[in-house]
């Protein structure tokens, strides 16, 4: 399994770069496409973590639906690129970045401990396949599953109500 680190670092680098692309790109369309790339590489990371079904679901739900909605809405707004994409002058941003960097270091410290502590034999795939995920979903988490069904319907009705409202997309006054 010596190729595992190479593949991990390949995907990790690409995920970080495309995540930075989402935040730093001036034109929102390019940041939406970088988000799609992030989802693609994240699904590769899920694949490495032996979660094949989740990698496919990540591609289907996120990269294939949510980000397509973002790209469609951005195309409807036809923003070529914004005049000043970043809020506040550079001093304000610098202080924000300073706070965030501090927070990041606080979170990252325990991780370096985790690196040495956890044994590396967890790499061999231990049969965590889809069937186990499915059995658990319908035995232990059955209530959450039904609630998500209700949530989806409520969101659908909410989106339709918002769209048909006075300022909405389907407003009858047009």
């Amino acid at each position: 399994m010596d190729i595992y680190p190479i593949v991990f670092h390949f995907f990790a680098a690409l995920v970080t770069i495309s995540a930075l692309g989402v935040v730093l790109m001036p034109s929102p369309i390019y940041s939406a496409l970088c988000l799609a790339l992030t989802m693609l590489f994240l699904s590769g990371l899920f694949f490495i973590l032996d979660a094949q079904f989740l990698a496919a679901v990540q591609l289907m739900v996120y990269a294939g639906a949510v980000v397509v909605l973002f790209v469609m809405v951005l195309m409807l707004f036809d923003l070529r690129n914004e005049n000043q994409p970043f809020s506040g002058n550079w001093r304000v941003n610098l202080s924000k970045l300073g706070v965030i960097a501090l927070g990041f270091i606080l979170i990252a410290l325990p991780c370096t401990y985790l690196m040495k502590a956890s044994n590396s034999e967890w790499l061999q795939s231990r049969g965590l396949e889809t069937k186990k995920l499915a059995e658990l979903l319908f035995s232990k988490h059955i209530f959450a599953f039904e609630v998500v069904g209700a949530l989806l319907t409520v969101v659908l009705i909410g989106a339709i109500a918002l769209a048909k409202a006075k300022g909405g997309t389907h407003a009858r006054t047009e």
Binding site: M60, V61, A65, V66, L69, L76, T169
Partner: peptide, 21 residues
């Protein structure tokens, strides 16, 4: 361009999650 594509995309996401479940 008129914005009526938004509703198709939203209902696609929600029913896609149903398919995924």
């Amino acid at each position: 361009v008129s914005v009526k594509f938004y509703l198709t995309a939203v209902s696609f996401i929600l029913f896609d999650i149903e398919v995924v479940f």
